[in-house]
Write a protein that binds this DNA or RNA. Structure first.
Lengths: 128, 128
DNA sequence: TCATAGTATCCGTCTTGGCGAATATGTGCA
DNA sequence: TGCACATATTCGCCAAGACGGATACTATGA
């Protein structure tokens, strides 16, 4: 088995080997409609957790977890101010990534929608 | 930054509403280490299913399903030639997407790896 | 100090989906 | 026409993880 056990996944320097799991995790973070919706909401600007709860419509606990997840993955950054916690997208490449994926998905949305091998959890409010 | 609502899907078929589920599905396709590994393998050039089985090490059935999934999502294109089926990445933006994600993930791989809210299923076998 | 409000974490439940193995489909060749 | 090979599909099993609700944590204000 080709494995890159010798390539150390150090910050800022991902080799070609074990990184796959890490990058997959990174992608998976956006593979959930609720988190993606959340991220797109934050692309508009900084928002508090309460703002997000109001906008997305999930329970506060769920939103908090999703935000923490996005933060862990490096998509957003948290800023505490008293009792409030504000989240925002800091890296412009995040918007780039989302736009690129949107464009690619749009070019294939018929097949994508029809694909039954993957069915993103129909969580969140199903469309409005 | 006020663009999230203005990004027009190229294809025109994706609105702002239900698109989130579609794009999430798109991301989720790369959220599995096996599929991501597969895609990166195909970024190197056209490969047959057998090539992929040999390279990835999963069962043939699994590989076939993963490839079909990547094809449905528009990441790769299948070309039949007799009994063989060759898969390849046609859109250069796919490589762009992967590279962008890699760079972002690399900048945050410590936190990413530590994030227990998402645990991408380890590649082939289970974690040890 | 206590009450309150904003946020984070824990827990039980239930669905998604990845896995190998078995099997079906399809193509080329004798 | 039947066998062999390449690929696709189906099935049962089981873990990841998304959900709401309950609860813990923390900062502000009285």
């Amino acid at each position: 088995m080709s494995e890159a056990a010798d390539i150390a996944p150090v910050d800022g320097l991902l080799g070609q080997g074990d990184e796959v799991g890490t990058v997959a995790k990174f992608f998976r973070a956006l593979g959930d409609p609720s988190r993606l919706r959340l991220l797109e909401f934050l692309l508009d600007g900084e928002r508090s957790v309460s703002d997000c709860v109001a906008h997305i419509g999930l329970s506060q606990g769920r939103i908090s977890t999703h935000l923490a997840c996005l933060a862990d993955c490096g998509y957003v950054h948290a800023r505490r101010e008293g009792r409030w916690c504000y989240y925002r997208v800091t890296d412009p490449r995040v918007a780039e990534l989302v736009m690129l994926a949107r464009a690619l998905a749009a070019d294939n949305c018929t097949a994508l929608d029809a694909c039954e091998r993957i069915d993103a959890p129909a969580t969140a409010p199903r469309r409005m």
